[in-house]
Design a binder for these strands. Structure first.
Lengths: 111, 111
DNA sequence: TTAACTATCTAAACAGATTATACACTTACC
DNA sequence: GGTAAGTGTATAATCTGTTTAGATAGTTAA
């Protein structure tokens, strides 16, 4: 993003988990998915996605397998684990509560 | 916070600016103010506040003066500058848009 | 006199994100 | 035949904001 680069920070994992909770996917697709949904305000760098994947695999939140790559570049797919689903549920609840509170703290009396 | 420590990240400045937009204040008070409004979900460490102040003063977002400290510990007050008000308005608008989009990306089809 | 609270401050470490770079294959166009 | 645009993965180095941990010091109440 041109400015406000930290918007996504801390939520990347949650968003990846949400996408994978709806079906297996791979880095490039997830990245496109987020940028598309970001409406020009939110951006993700591929490096962010891939480092998140690595971290999340180490944490047992997802597993990975190579796609058969018929006629095209190889794709590494990611699948959410039960632990990943659990964490997503927690993070989702946390976001719902936190965003309400954050809104209050940021907007304050400046309604 | 026990978990989810990054919730505030990137918003600390905006919240400080919001508080100062409603009147001069000092570190300890601002910190209390945020923790109180945080409803147990959001926490700020004093170091976060003071490092933010330093950064923000360097960026011309606020000015500072010592309180007269009659009967009590000395207090360093902070006053928002016009540049600070400008940035607050921008960040506020950004938050309003970003939180809506973030909500969409985090919740997705898991309504 | 001790505990709890008010109040400010800094150095070092940490975590997640970005920048920059590399590699490689496919499709469409000229 | 060449090349540009798009698809796709990956890592090292750097940046930034926050946390951890520590220091200092005055006030109030038990």
């Amino acid at each position: 993003m041109a400015h406000g680069g930290d918007i996504l920070r801390g939520h990347t994992e949650t968003i990846i988990l949400r996408i994978l909770s709806e079906g297996d996917s791979y880095g490039y697709e997830i990245s496109k998915n987020i940028i598309e949904g970001g409406e020009g305000v939110i951006d993700v760098k591929d490096a962010t996605i891939y480092t998140a994947f690595k971290r999340m695999e180490e944490d047992g939140l997802l597993t990975t397998y190579w796609g058969d790559g018929v006629g095209g570049a190889r794709r590494r797919y990611y699948k959410i684990t039960p632990k990943g689903r659990e964490l997503y549920a927690e993070k989702l609840a946390e976001w719902k509560k936190a965003s309400r509170i954050l809104d209050k703290l940021i907007v304050g009396g400046n309604k």
